[in-house]
C-alpha cells in the first residue's frame, strides 16, 4: 500500500512544482483583480456602452469553460501571430477568465454602499471619480475580503489546468512522476495533499485579513 519511503524523494520535486503553481496563482490574481476592478469601474461610470461592455464580458466568461479559453490562448493565438509560453498563456487566460468573477465580486461590494451616500456626495460637489475612490471604494473593499479569498481558491484550482498545456506545475509534475517511476498512489496522494494544504492556508489567510480589515463595531 502506501510506501512512506518514497515521500522524501518526491518532496523536492513537489516543492519546486508548488512554487511554480504559486507563481502562476500570484500572476493570475494580480491580473484578474486588476481587470475585475477596472471592469467594475467601467460599470460604475454609468455610461451605457461601458455598462454593456461589462455585462457582455461577464456573460461571456461565465458561460465559457476555462479549459477552452486556455486552448484558445495557447493553441489559437499563434495563428494570429501571438506565440505565448505555457506560463504566459496560462497566466493570461486565468487573468482574463477570473477578471469577470472578480468584477462581479466588486460589483456586489459596491452595491453594499447605500445609494444615498453617493447622491449626497454628488450634491455637495464631489466629482464621480472622487465618489468612486473616496466614498465607495473604502467602504466596499472592507467587505470584499471573504469573497476575494473564496475566488482566489477557485483560481488556485484552475491553475491545475495549466498542466494540460505543459506548464510544469504540481499536477503535471505528479503525472510525470507517475509515468516515469510507475508509482501511482504516493504522487497522487501527495498532489491532493499539496492542493488541500494550500487551500486551507488560503482560507486562513482570508480569515485573518478579514479580521484585520473589517470594521470592529464601528460604522456599517
Amino acid at each position: 500500500m502506501f510506501d512512506w519511503s518514497l515521500i522524501p524523494g518526491l518532496l523536492p520535486l513537489f516543492g519546486e512544482a508548488a512554487l511554480r503553481t504559486l507563481a502562476l496563482l500570484v500572476c493570475a490574481l494580480a491580473g484578474g483583480c486588476t481587470l475585475g476592478f477596472a471592469l467594475n469601474a467601467l460599470r460604475e461610470s454609468g455610461r451605457r456602452p461601458l455598462v454593456a461592455v461589462y455585462w457582455s464580458y461577464v456573460g461571456l466568461m461565465r458561460g465559457l469553460p476555462f479549459l477552452i479559453l486556455l486552448f484558445i490562448a495557447y493553441f489559437g493565438l499563434p495563428s494570429v501571430g501571438l506565440q505565448l509560453s505555457p506560463f504566459a498563456a496560462a497566466a493570461g487566460a486565468l487573468s482574463v477568465y477570473s477578471g469577470a468573477y472578480f468584477a462581479e465580486i466588486f460589483r456586489a461590494c459596491w452595491q453594499t454602499v447605500p445609494k444615498g451616500q453617493v447622491e449626497a456626495a454628488r450634491t455637495i460637489g464631489f466629482s464621480p471619480a472622487r465618489v468612486f475612490w473616496n466614498i465607495q471604494a473604502p467602504q466596499a473593499m472592507r467587505g470584499s475580503v471573504p469573497l476575494l479569498a473564496n475566488q482566489s481558491l477557485l483560481v488556485l484550482k484552475d491553475c491545475a489546468l495549466a498542466s494540460v498545456i505543459t506548464y510544469p506545475e504540481l499536477t503535471m509534475t505528479a503525472g510525470k512522476v507517475v509515468s516515469e517511476q510507475f508509482i501511482y498512489l504516493e504522487p497522487y496522494v501527495l498532489l491532493a495533499l499539496c492542493y488541500w494544504g494550500m487551500s486551507i492556508a488560503l482560507d486562513f489567510l482570508g480569515r485573518w485579513m478579514n479580521q484585520r480589515f473589517s470594521l470592529k463595531g464601528g460604522v456599517r
Binding site: 484550482k157 491553475c159 491545475a160 498542466s163 499536477t171 505528479a174 498532489l191 491532493a192
Partner: peptide, 16 residues
Amino acid sequence: FRGTPLLVQLLMAFYL
C-alpha cells in the same frame, strides 16, 4: 472536494 482541483480528483479516481 472544495480544496482540491477537479482535475486532481478525476486523475486520482481514474488512475488509482
